[in-house]
Design a protein around this nucleic acid. Sequence first.
DNA 1: CCTATGTGCAACTGAGGGGTTGCATTGACC
DNA 2: GGTCAATGCAACCCCTCAGTTGCACATAGG
Lengths: 105, 105
Amino acid sequence: MTTEALVPVFAALGDETRWSILAALGEGEASASALAGRLPVSRQAIAKHLAVLEEVGLVESLRAGREVRYRVVGAQLEATARRLDAIGALWDRRLVDIKRIAESL
Amino acid sequence: MTTEALVPVFAALGDETRWSILAALGEGEASASALAGRLPVSRQAIAKHLAVLEEVGLVESLRAGREVRYRVVGAQLEATARRLDAIGALWDRRLVDIKRIAESL
DNA sequence: CCTATGTGCAACTGAGGGGTTGCATTGACC
DNA sequence: GGTCAATGCAACCCCTCAGTTGCACATAGG
């Protein structure tokens, strides 16, 4: 569930409208139509965004009769955050190494 | 230095070529021309990417005579990771609250 | 001084993505 | 069964952006 490629996740997070959707979903599950009532974009636009978000695991869907409710997946955000932090630490470590080498000259 | 809007940072991270650049810079400082020798894109394309990365604080530049060397900023990645983790935790907490409410019925 | 190399600026092209409208379909409810 | 609301699908527009080429400018080195 967390083995997804991470670049597409960032691409998904690099859009203001999708953050609006995530923020709205953060206050509780909602369907595409319900979200369309709260955001200044059409239902189809929201449906596309939800498809993107679900593709990268930031959101999950549940059928409830004729409607499809979406829920935010905090775990995916946290997993992404951990990976990002690990990479940053790696880069920092390398810079530290270079500095140490320079100081030892 | 870490008070930047975070959506543009994710947009910057949502591109494979930019990750290639970051990975290459992770092995040490380099100029745009040097990077162009290692990556399958033109120098100007890399220059544009570096401008984007510098704009969001993921990279910093240093003039060295006639060339401009770029360096990755691990701290910015880590700061972004922390913010991401905080948001994920918020959403998780809310889901927990909902669950607790449901169980108390 | 002349040449090499590294940058910067500008214009252009092509593809992808955000957004829209319209229509078909499916399921809930009287 | 008929109606209404929610979803799904498809075509389309527009704009952004990644990438290119071409040329002008600056600087290190012989």
